[in-house]
Simulated scan of single mutants.
Amino acid sequence: MSDITLRTAQKDDLAALVQLEQACFSGDRLSKRRFKHWLEADNGIFIVARDNHMLLGYGLVLLHQGTRLARLYSIAIDDRARGQGVAKKILAELEVRAAQVGRLFMRLEVAENNAGAIALYQSAGYRIFGEYSDYYEDHSDALRMQKRIRTVGSVSPELVVGYHDVPWFRQNTEFTCGPASLLMAMGCLDAQCELSHEQELDIWREATTIFMTSGHGGCHPIGLALAAQRRGYQATAFVNTQAPLFIEGVRTEHKKSVMTLVDEQFKNKAQAEGVIVEYCELSLSHIEHWLQNNYAVIVLISTYRLDGRKAPHWVTVTAIDDMCLYVHDPDLDEKIQVSFDCQHIPIARDDFIKMQTFGRDKLRTAVAIKRLV
């Protein structure tokens, strides 16, 4: 077979596209009218694979407004081109193009009994995350699959800032996201740093706020900065308010008084131990600056956009580029995730700005650390 060329679908391809569709599918076909629509639409990515003589296949991705998702709507390969890697080439090109226009994930549906297609998608890194019953015209079920298509440096490597060799560490309790994130930050600056459950709990005991709205207390940014400083790092805590943190959702006055006292203690200890506390409005430019200067950074976000719970949650920043900020999330949900799903997670800049604001008081806080020389 001659060299395969991938290019954007054109009106001249219409007749061959219709013919290919008829040959590949017995149901759920795209009509000539729909092909015409997608050849002209601006909310899709439509490419074809050709050699010198014939149309070998096509791929169509839909770009829904208001989301960071791309959806693989249809892919078809001529029988004469099967086994030549055409489908894999088309899929890879669609992923690159979707990532270039700001999409972070690709989703698709595939017939549950289509073993060949499922194997192709799995080999390309797609994972099953759900299914639709009675999805196709023949009443067969469909599997839902997804892949992260935007990764650090995959689109604009020259624009990436950061991307230290950041180890991933899973938090062992529901309340130790702060210590787990700090351990990852310390680990990227010092390969000898021990990332352990014992260290995680030690840091939590040093940095805890004692109480939260429910359950055990989370970690205070100044407390985390103190813990890092005591372990040989230069630490700075950035907070946009001097008021006591995290008490707005606490109902009892006793808990509030305890948390206020802890807040005051952390501030006094920071002054005594040389930990810098900067009171300023935190922005992505701050994070970019720290990464450029070889700091490791952990940031507090609200989980509302992740799970609807509006809980404060610490994550470790690994890189930033022109479109996304990337984080290691220490919270692994084994029911739906593997550890890879929690590493270098791409979050669009605008989305991260919203996630980074916690509570009615719009708290923004982060801790930046650097190895002492």
Rank of each mutant, 00 (worst) to 15 (best):
I4P: 04
T5S: 14
T8D: 13
A9M: 10
A9I: 01
Q10P: 03
D12P: 04
D12C: 10
D13M: 13
A15T: 15
L17V: 02
V18P: 02
L20T: 09
C24F: 07
C24A: 06
D28N: 08
K32L: 10
F35M: 02
W38Q: 04
W38N: 12
I45K: 09
A49C: 01
L55D: 03
L55H: 11
L60E: 08
H64N: 09
H64S: 12
L69W: 08
R71A: 10
R71D: 12
D78F: 03
R82V: 04
G85R: 13
G85Q: 08
V96K: 15
A99R: 02
Q100E: 15
R107W: 00
E109T: 12
V110M: 02
G116W: 11
G116N: 15
Y121K: 08
I128L: 03
E131A: 14
Y135G: 13
Y136V: 13
E137V: 05
D141S: 11
A142N: 09
M145F: 03
Q146F: 03
R148F: 08
I149V: 06
E158R: 13
L159I: 01
H164M: 15
V166G: 05
V166H: 13
W168V: 05
W168D: 06
F169D: 06
R170F: 01
N172Q: 12
T173W: 09
T173H: 07
A180Q: 05
A180G: 10
A180D: 01
L183Q: 15
L183F: 00
M184E: 05
A185N: 08
M186T: 02
M186I: 01
G187V: 02
C188W: 05
A191W: 02
Q192E: 13
E194S: 12
Q199N: 14
E200Y: 08
R205E: 08
A207P: 09
I210M: 03
F211T: 13
T213P: 00
S214H: 12
S214P: 00
G217C: 09
I222A: 11
L226K: 09
R231Q: 05
Q234P: 04
A235Y: 03
F238D: 05
T241W: 04
F246M: 10
T252R: 05
K256W: 04
T260W: 02
V262M: 14
E264S: 09
F266H: 09
F266C: 07
K269Y: 13
A270R: 06
Q271N: 08
L284N: 11
E288T: 07
V299P: 00
L300W: 02
T303Y: 09
Y304G: 12
L306P: 01
H313L: 00
V315M: 14
L325A: 02
H328L: 01
D329A: 07
D331C: 07
L332D: 05
K335E: 08
V338F: 12
S339Q: 12
D341M: 11
D341I: 11
D341H: 14
Q343S: 00
H344F: 03
I345G: 03
F352P: 04
L372F: 07
